[in-house]
Design a protein around this nucleic acid. Structure first.
Lengths: 121, 121
DNA sequence: CCCGATACCTTGTCGCGCAAGGTATCGGGT
DNA sequence: ACCCGATACCTTGCGCGACAAGGTATCGGG
């Protein structure tokens, strides 16, 4: 059945870029560690925003390299240390920009779909 | 200024996959030729949905190959022939699926952004 | 006569998402 | 005693859409 494979592909392409927005939005509330972020995003929105490990960890490293977030290792009282991420001032500004871009896209698409929504002819 | 380059990059990543939805939505109303589609999308939504030639033409070919649209050359009474595209029954079904995926993503993001929207701590 | 618009096309590069692999610890079940 | 799933981090290689940059050809206006 090619349908399910197609679905997965287009879902991936549609969600592209939104991961960054989703991650920064969650970190904007409070600090989180990587594995925790995965669970938060999986539980939100019926799995639509689910992020795989191979996506999340490189993304976090990119955000850290560009100064949008900072990481601190913490292991006090437990083994299996966790790497906590905190959003920076720079990151908040970037997040605001991202949200604007996103709502701009959503508005444009909504307008297009509403205008042309009715099946003609 | 790295900001404008960054903006272009994230706008491109965010819009990824929506082009297919936009093109099929326009074709769902009536047939269009490639160059015309470019103008329609550029004029809609303040340029947010603008598509470049290097994106549109390969996309149309992919949609044709998978049977979602069909093309017919037309040049009657004029030189510079145009290649008109018409959506198929199969294409309409695919479009419906795409729209569902898109609204699912938008809903999930809206929920996430509303829940976490307020800046805490 | 040249240049911009019209109208189609292609090749190569960039960068994200992911599959698939890896390491290591911990706790519960049998 | 042993195994396995969950926790928690990481990497390499591939697929694929968007685009920059190039190409071809015609038409009309300044």
């Amino acid at each position: 059945m090619p349908g399910s494979a197609t679905i997965a592909r287009l879902r991936r392409e549609l969600a592209r870029g939104t991961t960054e927005l989703a991650v920064l939005s969650v970190l904007n509330v409070r600090r989180r560690y990587g594995y925790e972020l995965m669970k938060v995003l999986r539980d939100a929105g019926e799995g639509v925003l689910e992020v795989k490990e191979g996506t999340l960890y490189p993304l976090l490293h990119r955000l850290e390299d560009s100064g949008h977030i900072v990481a601190t290792w913490e292991a006090e009282g437990r083994s299996r240390p966790r790497k906590y991420y905190v959003i920076t001032e720079d990151g908040r500004a970037y997040l605001a920009m991202l949200r604007e871009e996103w709502s701009g896209l959503v508005d444009a698409m909504r307008q297009l779909l509403n205008t042309l929504g009715e099946v003609h002819e």
